[in-house]
Design a protein around this nucleic acid. Structure first.
Lengths: 216, 216
DNA sequence: AATTGTGAATTCCTTCACAGCC
DNA sequence: GGCTGTGAAGGAATTCACAATT
């Protein structure tokens, strides 16, 4: 019953995911051993960063040798909690919801989209091309329990996003991926990750004019 | 001909976009004046942060009073380069490309999706529901010039993403939004922003198991 | 000899706290 | 009095550089 007191930053966690993907790639190419140096070169970052990130969870390497690709991969999967299967439910069977449901490659063996939810009578009880059912959002609570959904994707318009989020939280969901470009209230213990495409585009726009402005 | 020497961080730029959205909202609600304090409260952040972010670009406020919502909004639009219209081209007319092309609300008056590109003969020369044309990716260079496309969205599988990116860069595009979960080589002067959903899901997964691990 | 794991140094980002101004 | 703009302080993240280890 030991507590890890050090708080691990989001930046570290996100990099672990990137390391893991790289290790998957190396595994497929038959690479068995790798140094932080080589891994860093592939990912365009500093080798000390990789070692520091890993050090927060234990000692996975061998001095003078490096890391076993397979072993490190298993460790990262465990740390990230993808040594088990997560069940994803998507609310909003519009283009965005469909895109995520169907997008190949996102969900190897770690994630499975089990259902979409919508209130549009035209969509309910149909399925996606891959056969994922589209259900009535009224049955959300029931279905979350029945199918053990543990991650919800919010693909609904900003205008209703907070109220849908509140529902989902009330049901007991602890992890939500949101695409609505807005501010939310989320209670303690619930993780909300927002993918804000507006911000991404604005950032690109800025980069396009940044030079002009500087030589203004 | 004065150069701004201070480099402005991505974090600052991303926040400016968030401030702008909030100001848009305030404008719609008839609010004319706001203090950094009030703005910070709405966005769950520190008022000094807002003032510091803005200070990097000039003095937009009035001491003792606050900021004019309309004026600050215009200034932010100019800084972010969205006081002009950007033309977006989407490569890959799959679910993801379609979702972005059709997604309401992303593209107010600042962005316009002018075309999608694909190599699938079944899709070429059709249009999206909203009437955006799907063109042959072979005509990419020509169309980018003809339509003054300045932002490209990569909605293609990871396996071909680097080669498509190379093409796009060769044509002279300087801003790319990418959804393929992978590492890229990008030359100096080209801004590549990656939205990596794998990382987002892994981060959610981690949050679900983090507690268990800590009380291991 | 090579590479990890890590304290120290550095760089970057955020927050404090207050002078300056309306 | 109230709020901005900002130097100084504090905190976080990254990188350096080297002792420890195989």
């Amino acid at each position: 019953m030991v507590m890890k007191v050090e708080k691990i930053s989001e930046l570290t966690i996100d990099r672990l995911s990137v390391y893991l993907r790289c290790l998957d790639f190396l595994t497929n190419n038959g690479v068995k051993q790798i140094s932080s140096q080589e891994l860093a070169a592939q990912l365009n970052l500093n080798s000390a960063q990789i070692r520091k990130d890993l050090a927060q969870f234990g000692e996975f390497g061998v001095r003078g040798v490096g890391y076993s690709v397979g072993k490190l991969r298993d460790c990262l999967k465990h740390i990230l909690g993808i040594d088990r299967l997560h069940k994803i439910g998507i609310i909003g069977a519009g283009n965005l919801g469909m895109a995520i449901a169907e997008y190949e490659g996102f969900f190897g063996t770690n994630y499975s989209v089990v259902a979409l939810f919508d209130s549009d009578i035209e969509k309910i009880n149909k399925t996606t091309k891959r056969g994922i059912p589209i259900l009535d959002v009224k049955d959300l609570a029931e279905e979350i329990k029945k199918s053990s959904i543990d991650i919800i994707v919010l693909g609904v318009p900003a205008s209703v996003a907070q109220s849908v989020l509140d529902q989902v939280v009330a049901i007991g969901i602890k992890a939500v991926l949101n695409f609505a470009p807005m501010q939310f209230y989320v209670p303690e213990g619930v993780k909300l990750k927002t993918v804000d495409l507006t911000v991404s585009f604005d950032s690109l726009s800025h980069s396009l004019v940044a030079n002009e402005h500087e030589i203004g």
